[in-house]
């Protein structure tokens, strides 16, 4: 299956929970540490996300995603550790580069926030089928057109990439050099991009026609082949998480007033 979706069906309860509940989880994971303003809230939520990902049998799949952002995180650590405006106390030195306690501490705060956000999003995207999520939204009155655009991207982009590679092969077989120095690549880009754009436009028009003749723009009330993705616990999750967010806000206000 060629799709850019990261979803994997492991058959766990996390796959069966309503996407809305998981979206509430993402909102809670981002807002609660921000509202509370304490680092431990972020750490707790990272632990919760890790536990959920482990339960959903997708923790391993989170690692490459964290590794991708690892470069950014490392850059933050280096820049803040060395150059943060409040740096005073040297912590350690790597050759001529001196890292300061205050900067590293500040960078750790940023790192915790980023990892928390990434992992909570992983809970959503690794355990939720995109089409289920959109179908649930459309059931709630969301525009089917927007839903279609969102979903089709996951499947159509890999197909377009395949078309691009076919066109590249065709041009290469006619003697065009597509690899080598930057100048060679730029020279190859123009004869490649014109057929890619043209074929994409033609395909888009044909697909629009095909959708049209299958009633895509129908004003009738849509029905669904699949049942709505939800469990008995979703109602409680969707009440508990907003309550937790409100509680965090109240806690912060009381701290501020005290």
């Amino acid at each position: 299956m060629k799709t850019i979706s990261l979803y994997v069906d492991k058959g766990t309860m996390l796959n069966k929970i309503a996407p809305e509940s998981k979206i509430w989880y993402v909102i809670a994971a981002i807002t609660i540490p921000a509202l509370m303003g304490t680092r431990w809230a972020g750490i707790v939520l990272i632990a919760v996300s890790a536990a959920l990902l482990l339960y959903g049998k997708v923790l391993k799949r989170t690692l490459p995603l964290l590794a991708v952002s690892g470069f950014v995180l490392l850059t933050v650590l280096i820049i803040q550790g060395m150059f943060w405006w409040g740096n005073e106390t040297p912590l350690f030195a790597l050759g001529p580069a001196v890292f300061y306690r205050e900067g590293v501490n500040y960078a750790l705060g940023i790192l915790i926030n980023i990892i928390n956000i990434l992992m909570s999003f992983c809970v959503l995207i690794l355990t939720t089928k995109p089409s289920d999520m959109m179908e649930n939204f459309v059931r709630r009155g969301f525009s089917p057109r927007f839903g279609y655009v969102f979903i089709s991207v996951f499947q159509i982009i890999p197909q377009m990439t395949e078309t691009m590679s076919t066109i590249t092969d065709a041009q290469r077989s006619r003697g065009m050099e597509t690899e080598g120095s930057l100048a060679v690549r730029i020279k190859a880009f123009i004869p490649l991009i014109a057929p890619v754009i043209m074929s994409s436009l033609i395909n888009t028009k044909e697909r629009a026609l095909a959708l049209e003749v299958r009633g895509f723009n129908s004003r009738k009330k849509k029905t669904f082949l699949n049942d709505e993705v939800k469990t008995a616990g979703d109602r409680y999750i969707q009440i508990a998480l907003p309550v937790l967010i409100i509680a965090a806000a109240v806690w912060r206000v009381t701290q501020w007033l005290a």
Binding site: M1, K129, Y148, I151, Q159, R207, A210
Partner: peptide, 11 residues
């Protein structure tokens, strides 16, 4: 074109 008739929205 059969490819362009696939909606791209269904699994």
């Amino acid at each position: 074109n059969p490819f362009n008739q696939v909606t791209g929205a269904k699994a």
